[in-house]
Amino acid sequence: MANSRKTVKTALKLGILGLLSIAFVLPFVWMLSTSFKHESRIFPPPGQPPQWIPTTDVRDDQGRTLVKFDGKSAVDLGAEETGRHHLLLDGKQVEAWDHEIEPLQQVGLHWENYSKAFEMMDFWQNLRNTLFICFCTVLGTLVSSSVVAYSFARIPWRGRDAVFVLVLATMMLPYQVTLIPLFALYSKLGWVGSFKPLIVPYWLGVPFYIFLLRQFFKTVPEDLSAAARIDGCSEFGIYARIILPLAKPALATTALFMFLFQWGDFLNPLIYLQDDRQYTLAIALQQFQSQHVSAWGPLMAMSTVITLPIIVLFFFTQRTFIQGITMSGLKG
């Protein structure tokens, strides 16, 4: 009795979760589906249900499209400007209007949205820019934040804890407050229109990652440092040869989060990049969207291209991901 009630409950919960998760995933499926559709299929006639599976026209061995006319399939021999089609039906030539025929469809993918998007966006250049910025900022964050975190976690200097509170406080500061003076500063330095404003600050310690790494560094037993000191390590030696190798999981989390953030960052590139040769993928997509408002095929293709690496990355690094979020959330 109790058992069957439990089963019903479990089934109910699974049902709810299933429906919800479908709702969450549907936009992705729609994106993917649209990206592989022919232009003519992207906007279905009003009242038609959405088409999920991309299709292509059916052609015969001479490359002529097959259409449905009067309930039978026919070969489309070509159309006049008036919209009058010449059809080959059961070996006989007939004529039909545009709206009377319907091209036969089979499941198939249209890749041309992708090639179109690639051409229109200077994709490879954008990708290079994005990866360059990702690489520089990830490296900078890893190096600078870990060094600073070491200071806050493992060197007992006077005033340290007060300064650390300051580090945490800067995290709360909305970016808008420093936005304009920073822009003015970078203009004066002649950095606007270059990657420098997007990279240099990340080489000077990022508060969130300083915090994250500090929490991790603090878990390494103090005696390990003492042993290393007796073994002959300098302070930097302890950092580089003991703490860093032990903090690999936290460093991986840092790298991952930073990469993810930079890959999708919009505001900073929007403000500081001026030449479209410098655009990152995110900016390029937005620019492309604003210029081709209803080119949904290429737009979805591009969105897919930007999203897919992130999803793949997530599948390979799920544990690091979840742990990182948990770490930042609970020990805060």
Binding site: L20, P27, W30, P46, G264, I283, Q289, M300, I311
Partner: peptide, 29 residues
């Protein structure tokens, strides 16, 4: 868990463009 989590890591620009299409008044999903 993965399915619910995924949308939150999609680059915001991509998800905004995607939603613009999903919520398209005429042919949106």
């Amino acid at each position: 868990r993965t399915l619910f989590f995924l949308p939150s890591i999609v680059p915001i620009v991509a998800s905004a463009v995607l939603w613009l299409w999903v919520l398209n008044p005429e042919s949106g999903l």
